[in-house]
Structure formats: structure tokens, C-alpha cells
Computed example of a mutant assay.
Amino acid sequence: MVLPVIAGVDGSAESLAAAEWAAREAVRRERPLRLVHVWNWHPRQEDGELANAAQRHLARRSLRQAEERVRDACPGVRVYDEQVEGPATPALLDAAERAELLVLGSRGLSGFTGFLVGSVALGVVAKAARPVVLVRAGEEAEDEHLPADDGSASTRTGYRDVVLGLDLGDACDEVIEFAFEAAQSRRARLRVVHAWQPPSAISLGPGDIALVDDPRRGEEWQGFLSAVLQVWRDKYADVEVVECVPKDKPSTALVRAASGAGLLVVGHRLTERPVGPRTGPVTHAAIHHVGCPVAVVPHG
């Protein structure tokens, strides 16, 4: 069974940008594109047949608008649409189960919304068993590509880097493979980032890197990263890989590394948490502060 790329659409600028990005990704992956509108994007509307009819009308309009934009941007994409009933988060989680990946619009840090990426997107990212890509409003095809020689935007140039944020203490195959596949499909360079901080004497345990000088410690982390990536370099021999091991707070290093990137890939461990949906601090920083599309890849 060929799984589609799915984009959630609601008529917002963010979701339209997400739909267009999803169409380009579907073409790269040779997959169909499925546009999904969930009725219950705004659950406070009054009950009754009139409200239901209004929601169906809005759904059709949102889907038609998204489909027109997608077909203009990617005429060759195979696209179909669907209306489903909410609530939105469980409906999109259900859709993600039958998707190659799910693409959603994301506000990030914009205007007075502050740290609100959107409760629906956050809920989906925290619980989805399939990769979720978050796309900002205004994302265009040219943004995935390097600028032309004169500095102007272009789709005729090569792709910008794919950046992978890798925790060497929790290096999961699913996350690494997603990043290598993304780089290969774009013929882009893959930049792998593992940030480290000097341990304190109290935090050191058996098997930890000893309290040596920082240059030596950086070399140790560089060696670990190279060892982890070697099997993937062999498998994806045509992908250029750059390894980075900055001495910095992981979330800070990743946000900095993603500046100018075409795609950021981070992992998210699926765990049962007692109070609501949560993401780790690095994933949290990425989805709120990084301007390029962010792929959150779940793992066990």
C-alpha cells in the first residue's frame, strides 16, 4: 500500500503554506497528496444543523483553496481531499496513522501569539506515531533553495542544507534515516549537529567522558558522532555529510544551525506523560524558534 503525504488545511495562511510544501514533498517521494480538513477546528460554534452546514461549507472552501494552490505550484501531483469530523487533534492523529508523513501549519513566534505554536499542532506532534512536519506561513518553494549568484531567490539552484539534531545518548535509527532520506531526495548536504556541555564532577558517572580539557572533550564527541554515522554514510554514499559538535546548549546550537537551512529534523521519544502532551526541550525550542520547516520524527 502506497501511503500518502497528508496535509491538514483550515484556510489559514499557515495551512496553505503547509499544503504547498506537502505537495512538493509528495512529488519528491513519488506519493499522492491527501488534503484533510477537520470540521472541529473551532469547537465553540453552536450545535445544530445550521452550524453543521456552515462548517461543511467552510470545509469545502478551505479544501478548494488549498487544492488550487497545490495544483498551481505542483501541476503533476496526485491530490485528493477529505472532510473529517473532529475534535481536530485525535482526527489528525488518526489520519497520521495512514500517512507517510503529516504536514501542518505552524505559527511559531509571531506577533502577540508568543509561545503558541497552536494547541492542535502541539498535541499532534506530542502523540503522533508518524513523522510530523511543521511549516510557517509564507514558506515558498524558493526558500528551500540556495540563492542565485546575484542573491535573488530561485528554484533553479541546489537545495539548502538538511540539518539533523542528534542526541548521541539517544541516537535512533528512525530519526537518522529520515534525515538521510530527506537529504538524498533533495540532493542536499546533510549537516548533523550534536551539542555538548562540559559535565560537572558531580554529574560524571562510570563510562562518562573524563574531566579533560575542552578541546580533547570535543574530539571525543566528534569521534562518537563519526562512529554513529559511519553505517549511514556507507548506506547513503551519495549524500554529503558535515558533522558539527559545538560546545553549547543543545537547543541554542540547533536553532543557530537551522538558520539558513531548508529543513530541520529532530527526534521525539513517545512516552506516556501524566499531564497533557509534552515535547522535550530541544524539540520544543525547534518548533517555536526555527524559521524553516521542522520535521519531528517519533521513536520508541
Results as ranks from 00 to 15, higher is better:
Val242Ser: 10
Trp196Pro: 04
Glu85Val: 15
Arg233Ser: 13
Leu58Cys: 15
Glu174Ile: 05
Pro32Trp: 12
Leu204Met: 15
Gly114Ile: 07
Ser15Asp: 05
Gln222Glu: 11
Tyr80Asp: 15
Ser203Thr: 13
Ala188Ser: 11
Arg191Phe: 11
Val132Leu: 05
Asp170Gly: 10
Gln184Val: 03
Leu211Ile: 02
Gln45Ser: 00
Gly11Gln: 11
Lys235Pro: 08
Val79Glu: 13
Arg64Glu: 15
Lys127Ala: 10
Ser152Tyr: 05
Gly205Leu: 05
Ala285Lys: 01
Val290Asp: 03
Glu30Phe: 00
Ala26Tyr: 04
Arg136Thr: 14
Arg278Ser: 15
Ala195Arg: 06
Arg28Glu: 10
Asp214Arg: 02
Arg160Gln: 07
His289Thr: 05
Asn40Tyr: 06
Arg156Ser: 15
Asp47Gly: 08
Glu181Phe: 03
Arg60Pro: 03
Val162Arg: 07
Ser15Cys: 04
Ala201Cys: 04
Arg28Ser: 08
His37Met: 00
Ser106Leu: 02
Ala66Pro: 13
Leu50Tyr: 04
Ala51Met: 07
Gln230Phe: 06
Gly223Leu: 02
Gly276Ile: 14
Ala59Asn: 04
Leu225Arg: 03
Val228Asp: 09
Ile176Lys: 12
Ser259Tyr: 09
Ala73Asn: 07
Thr283Tyr: 06
Glu97Lys: 15
Gly267Pro: 01
Ala141Glu: 00
Leu109Lys: 06
Arg187Tyr: 08
Asp234Trp: 06
Ile209Ser: 01
Leu33Glu: 02
Val117Phe: 08
Ala95Val: 03
Gly300Met: 09
Val27Thr: 15
Arg71Val: 14
Val275Thr: 14
Val124Phe: 14
Thr279Phe: 09
Val245Gly: 04
Asp149Glu: 15
Leu225Glu: 05
Val192Gly: 12
Phe112Arg: 14
Thr89Trp: 05
Lys249Gly: 09
Ala153Asp: 15
